[in-house]
Design a protein around this nucleic acid. Structure first.
Lengths: 340, 340
DNA sequence: TTGTAAGCGTTATCAA
DNA sequence: TTGATAACGCTTACAA
């Protein structure tokens, strides 16, 4: 009772359009694909026919005949389970999707199951997509780096793999960004600066830690202590607890992501410590977590939407056989507030 | 210099597999598609050949020949710009994507440009997908309801449209949920209860407001005041400011989403009001916003991942021509904390 | 500039 | 149970 048969109104084919316009299928195809070698009259007639019939090219047929899929894969490793919850990724994907919406390309979401990465790899290599965008932090992106031998691949953030061809990627200079924002702590007079860092198997984790180190170096300060998290709020909270429990004294902390900072703030509050009164805090990402933290955090803003759009641009150029720089660095900016 | 030609190692075709296995293409096709009418020996031979050659069926060819696309569209209205930033959606999409990963189906992300919804509609009706999942709150989902005449469509949350065929959708009982959680405020002794509601052009906004009304009714309390937001933190903050500025006295507030509650909490804190000391607060969604709020909020937990997975299940059954209930209601549960 | 015709890699029908 | 063979709807030489 609840499901009636569906009326799949047979879509008009190119053949029908040709008949209606009084031309051959080739000509219709040319018009549809914007070939310059068609007389204005023919174009006119074809376009009218298309309009009247509501013709839409059959994607599969077009793909099969042209050997181009006009679709690109967005690969998300499954272990990045909380992927979608991360405002950074959310925004990058949004930028990506919106940019693509302005093109002929379609975005296919691919959750790469860990147990058989094989399945994903084969799908990608079987010519089902024209290119792939890999969004992950993890070091297990080796197989994807290799994938680049078969199809154009663009990474979001520098991949960790050392082998394989030089990957194409879009990123920000995490080392410089961290160094600069940690510098704000120094400028505020903090001398015992700790860090809640990201995982060392992610480039962002590694680089941000390095930036913190350099800032301390610049100021001739000694690193106080490092605790690691995985960029989630909960891990930031746990890391801060460990930091407090360790007994080391610190008056400043660089937290490698705003999400972790948010958690760290909770832990601090729990122990009665105040920011910036008792300890200064700076971080990276100007998302809701940084903006609505108590107090709002001095941080680094990344152009997340643009990162997504740029990844799309780079990939499309690669697909079109154009030459592109392997590395595209996006600018960041310091958002000064009162947490340092 | 930076981009070498790519070697698209020609993927082995079904034909090659047939040759290697010493059978016809038809037989290979049958094996690939799990037809029961093949001798074990043939299956064996074909499977070996497939393995050796690393054969993967060509999607386009398969789609073209079978008239099935094995792909479903996830339609996201562009005006739901902040879509990805919403933990609720993020989680639903995750559940959806992971469920689909276990099937033959592929998820195509479709950002529906507002200016030409036509483009999206055509894409969907041109037979490029087997079905569509519409994730939006808005009332402008009329065109999508109509879409259901052409292809199977499942909505996330009750669509607002009144015309067209009865839509299939997966949702939670927002009225009951809100009524129950608001009841916690009553149970805590609150008597002057306001609400920061969602937009009235979304079913969730409407229903949650209705639930709040009923709870007050149940307790013979008079509604104090309503301010509207759009489910984002910023809108919750603004709404709370308006509520405070209005001068009405209230000792309890039901905020229609945890994101808004998070913003509302900021506004309250800014004015020196404390939760739950001065005012009790309850909300909906047990995401990070509810969990890490100060204080953590008494709220309603929705099975977000399951909602996503269920939408996929319903859609696939529809595609397979099976009969499914128009409405699938998912259970929620109360998370009791100390904010009421 | 246009049309003809040969694929593209599958599935599906029909005989065998 | 298997194998020819004709679609599926489009692009693309090549010829005109």
């Amino acid at each position: 009772m609840s499901s009636e048969p569906l009326t799949h109104s047979a879509a008009p084919t190119l053949e029908l359009v040709a008949a209606a316009a009084g031309v051959s299928r080739s000509t219709v195809s040319r018009v549809v694909n914007g070939s310059p070698n068609v007389t204005p009259e023919a174009v006119e007639a074809v376009e009218r026919a298309i309009d009247e019939l509501g013709y839409v090219p059959n994607r599969a047929a077009r793909i099969l005949a042209s050997r181009r899929t006009f679709s690109i894969a967005l690969v998300i490793p499954e272990n990045t389970a909380k992927f979608f919850a991360d405002p950074y990724f959310a925004s990058v994907v949004q930028g990506l999707a919106m940019h693509l919406a302005g093109t002929q390309y379609t975005l296919t979401l691919l959750i790469a199951a860990e147990n058989d990465a094989e399945k994903t790899r084969r799908y990608l290599q079987a010519g089902n997509v024209d290119g792939a965008i890999i969004l992950s932090h993890h070091s297990d992106d080796r197989s994807y780096v290799a994938l680049a031998k078969s199809i154009p691949v663009v990474f979001g953030g520098r991949p960790m793999s050392s082998e394989g061809p030089n990957p194409y990627y879009v990123d920000v200079d995490n080392v410089e960004a961290s160094r600069e924002i940690t510098g704000r702590l120094v400028a505020a007079g903090r001398t015992r600066i700790a860090s809640i860092a990201g995982p060392l198997n992610m480039a962002a984790g590694l680089d941000r830690l390095e930036g913190w180190r350099r800032a301390l170096d610049d100021a001739k300060l000694t690193p106080v202590r490092i605790e690691h998290g995985d960029f989630t709020p909960a891990s930031g909270e746990a890391a801060m607890r460990r930091l407090l429990d360790s007994g080391v004294e610190f008056d400043g902390v660089f937290v490698a992501s705003a999400q972790m900072a948010s958690g760290a703030l909770n832990a601090l509050r729990e122990r009665g410590m105040r920011v910036p009164d008792d300890v200064g805090m700076v971080t990276i990402d100007n998302d809701y977590f940084a903006q609505s933290a108590q107090p709002p955090l001095t941080t680094i803003e990344q152009p997340t939407m643009e990162v997504g759009a740029t990844m799309a641009t780079v990939l499309l150029r690669l697909i079109d056989g154009e030459s592109v720089d392997r590395v595209t660095m996006m600018p960041v900016r310091v958002i000064e507030r009162d947490s340092a």
